[in-house]
Design a binder for these strands. Structure first.
Lengths: 253, 253
DNA sequence: TGTACAGTCCTGTATATACAGCTCGCTACC
DNA sequence: GGTAGCGAGCTGTATATACAGGACTGTACA
């Protein structure tokens, strides 16, 4: 037995006026909850109404409520724990997502020719790697240093470390024919990733390989990728600021 | 009547060995389709089996198949058109998502104090805006120029244009008390956004406001945000490279 | 006093079913 | 020959139902 509380009838009233009336029910539920979270109506870490309560309050089926809450979880607005409840996620501000694309596709999508030059591909002591990669990789890692070109302009310097346990035949590949990214994705499908983007100045070696001037600002993307919970690769992608940018969008609710 | 084709029995066989066997059915379907797309088994733009065919081939309910395909659509791997079918998305490489957070929360999350200094908030001719904003905004736009501090270090210069039609009382706000981002989110909930990230050098005014040296590289984020299909704001967020970076992750399949 | 267990509430997943709306090809009629 | 319209096949959405398993509470029993 679940009595209709004040909270629930409030919700029912707001439900009528959230977003376009023609939108599907699960969208309107998402808008309702998102509006409540973003306005501070429910604050950080606070428990939201349960699915069952929302079913009673809004007169929808549990599957519809469930879909709305599941998608909001995916979007990072709320956090759910089985057996406990649904809570406002702590970084409550709407977070925006930026898409970091594969550079080869990006170049071709803009109608240019993509090619690579391989500086070296070799085995090195895993002391050059971060602790997490070192832990899973053993005493040595594979390392490739590759320059990506758009037509004949250098556009990315890719310095990549690879876990030999996950990709034993990495050294044998010809990376002028297939990018490391594409090969890794084939051998160990990318299921998780992490990025850090910074603005930096390149050192002299990097400037020479990218053919840029002394004070040209560069976009540095550090990327680590996992395949089914195994850390596969850790890369340092350096782009001349004048020749490359990251684009992306989010939402399209 | 749908006969079991070679394609379908192949799928059924592969279905057994995709990812951990303990994973939920919809996850295994996602892995199956994702593996096929990433391996080139289905190539760019090609049509995938319909939901009905997957139901027959894998012996699952349509809702389960539908959930798998819907989530893959969200992840950008496939494209679906009602009445037509399901197709491999053209930028087929797994695209990674970078989270661009609200700077105030980011600062506080790292245990620092966030405050802002308002340089100016005023009305300007909409000639300063991009065509799309100009089209919806009328002859003038609102513009705010604000410096964000982490403790006492300038960390972001926010130059923002706002659509007066969407946010009529923007000029009256005190942005030392609430950031523009937070206010806009309250008044016109953010439902869609777009970003461009570049590495640039700051001009002399920007250098003075951010208190940085001449050749310090900066991260420039240009962000536009919509609320229910109305363009609300267009911002230029400039960060000193040595003091700020963007972090993010994706997947966690 | 303490431990084991039952009961309850919650989310996570899977299924069957239904109807709506879109797209395209085929057919029958003009 | 051309065209209007019907129907098949597709995705999109909504619902009712079911069971599993996690988390917590309170009680009964040793």
């Amino acid at each position: 037995m679940v009595p209709i509380t004040v909270v629930e009838s409030e919700l029912a009233a707001q439900f009528q006026q959230v977003g376009p009336a023609s939108a599907p029910a699960y969208e309107r539920v998402k808008n309702l909850i998102a509006a409540g979270v973003r306005s501070g109506r429910w604050s950080d870490g606070q428990q939201l109404p349960s699915e069952h309560q929302l079913v009673s309050a809004l007169g929808l089926s549990r599957m519809t409520i469930n879909r709305a809450l599941r998608e909001l979880t995916h979007e990072g607005l709320i956090v759910r724990r089985a057996g406990v409840g649904t809570f406002v996620a702590t970084p409550k501000a709407a977070s925006a997502l930026l898409q970091v694309r594969n550079i080869a596709d990006d170049v071709r999508r803009h109608g240019h020719r993509h090619r690579t030059e391989v500086v070296h591909v070799r085995e090195e002591s895993s002391e050059v790697a971060d602790p997490e990669l070192r832990a899973v990789a053993g005493p040595t890692v594979f390392r490739s240093l590759i320059v990506h070109f758009e037509d004949d302009t250098p556009i990315q310097l890719e310095d990549r470390l690879v876990n030999p346990a996950a990709v034993p035949h990495y050294l044998e590949r010809d990376f002028t024919r297939q990018t490391p990214h594409a090969y890794l994705n084939e051998v160990a499908p990318l299921t998780r990733g992490e990025h850090i983007v910074e603005a930096v100045l390149a050192d002299s070696t990097e400037r020479r390989l990218l053919r840029i001037a002394r004070h040209e600002p560069c976009l540095l993307v550090r990327r680590r990728t996992w395949s089914y919970d195994v850390l596969v690769s850790s890369a340092r992608l350096l782009h001349p600021g004048s020749r490359h940018r990251l684009e992306g969008s989010f939402g399209a609710d």
